[in-house]
Design a protein around this nucleic acid. Structure first.
Lengths: 261, 261
DNA sequence: CGTAGTGTTGAATTGAATCAAGTGTCGTGG
DNA sequence: CCACGACACTTGATTCAATTCAACACTACG
């Protein structure tokens, strides 16, 4: 009910769209992996938990089969049931405005938590779908709360995760309310860069899992503007773009653009 | 250290800037009031707590003396120590951009919680100051965490408060990324309206505690645009404005503006 | 191989910013 | 209690960044 239409392509072996594939030999979409052995456990929910605590967390985590591009984790106003941790691939959250066009509210990379907007109203405030072949750990919220009550470390950490989300959202508020198109784009690219770095992927070369249109909706700009800015940044020698492939050639200069504001 | 320069005007008896003063006879800035007897306890942290639980919460709440207009609760990158519940008056959070000009990231009315952006980084991400003579309950976060661990109700409720903040921030993301100046303003006024209603003040007549410039910074618009939009909405007969005094004359029409997007 | 989705580029348009010049309001100190 | 100064707000003229409209190129996938 709250999960979208998964594909039947459960054994998909497609190489992930990351420029630098992870070192681990296991398929990143592998369903049979515990929190304890997950290469993301240092960044995800298990952070700061002891071995036995991680084991308890493991018990409540549901590892769904992989999601195909476009599959939904949940849809706007579905009943809130779980939060999700991205194990591989990437997702976008979006809302549909009354006139039909969507607005992207967030992108999620491995190790990041999805769905916290539904906690208070008991309904998800947006829809979330996979941008590519991806896999997810689902954490039923009632059980997460119960376990948090038992494990102060987990409670502390989940407060921190939510606080971080709040801080990030406020940065975006500032970005949208005062940055130019170029500043927004530079900031977005730098943000992606550090998020890829966090999961040990190259911070300077990566594939964008989302379309220009998605980025534009996220940054409050049109596709055309996105395209023009990418071209402009490339002409200035700050980045190299080829379709979804991006290379950041001059991080300092990009940072200077953002800070200029 | 983390609190700004409070004034010595502890016994200030000024009538609060609300259009409809609260029914309670006690001074709304009164320092000596317990959570149990606070008229906001149905909307604030004590929600859903039992009598004895409220009593325990009471023990950790610090009721500082009132803040004068402009006094700071904390400043950007101060060490995170507490979250704050507004008891009376109002506050704004803002960040200063490198070129010196500020961007307002939030307004806070009675019963609302301030400071959650500092939880994860252990530093406040913005500065927060009083917009008028105001009073606050300070809740040291370490103790709030400890108590949440003991009281599942409190843990649950604080998760909900944070989730609500996240959902709200995402709505603003959408607003900033796709609404026109008029839509933003209408949405802002309707938002204020329901927040005043929540604390039993008139949803149609209220005084704005913040300047046009504050609103503009919050909505990503200039003061001049704010002024023009207010005038335009007034000419259309949707609102009546006189300085800080606002009356919403046609809520449905305002809603229609917002939904039009 | 064809088609739908994605991306690019150009020209015209426009909503809001900027620049500029005021008036109104409030709190303070003389 | 009034006068002063600082700040808050308004209104108009002009500019500009980004959107819109339009046409086309690329790619990827069934």
């Amino acid at each position: 009910m709250n999960t979208g239409n998964n594909s039947s392509d459960a054994e998909g072996m497609k190489i992930p769209l990351q420029a630098n594939p992870p070192v681990a030999k296991v398929c990143p979409h592998n369903v049979n992996i515990s929190c304890a052995s997950c290469r993301l456990n240092e960044l995800c929910l298990p952070i700061a938990l002891s071995k036995s605590e991680v084991h308890q967390l493991d018990e409540i985590v549901e590892r769904n089969r992989p999601y195909k591009k476009g599959d939904h984790l949940y849809r706007q106003s579905d009943e809130f049931k779980s939060v999700y941790a991205v194990r591989s691939g990437s997702f976008k959250s979006y809302v549909l405005s009354d006139n039909g066009q969507g607005r992207v509210t967030g992108f999620f990379l491995p190790g990041e938590i999805i769905g916290m907007d539904g906690i208070s109203s008991k309904k998800y405030a947006n829809s979330t779908s996979a941008l590519e072949h991806s896999s997810i750990c689902e954490i039923p919220f009632v059980q997460l709360e119960r376990l948090s009550h038992q494990l102060p470390n987990l409670q502390h950490h989940f407060f921190a995760i939510m606080g971080n989300e709040i801080a990030k959202d406020q940065q975006i508020h500032t970005l949208l309310s005062s940055y130019t198109a170029e500043e927004r784009t530079a900031s977005f690219l730098l943000g992606l860069s550090s998020r890829y770095a966090r999961v040990s992927l190259s911070p300077t070369r990566f594939l964008l899992p989302m379309t220009r249109s998605d980025i534009g909706e996220y940054l409050g700009l049109t596709v055309e503007t996105m395209s023009r800015i990418f071209t402009a940044l490339q002409r200035k020698g700050l980045i190299a773009v080829n379709n979804r492939e991006v290379e950041l050639l001059d991080i300092e200069a990009l940072r200077a653009i953002v800070t200029a504001s």
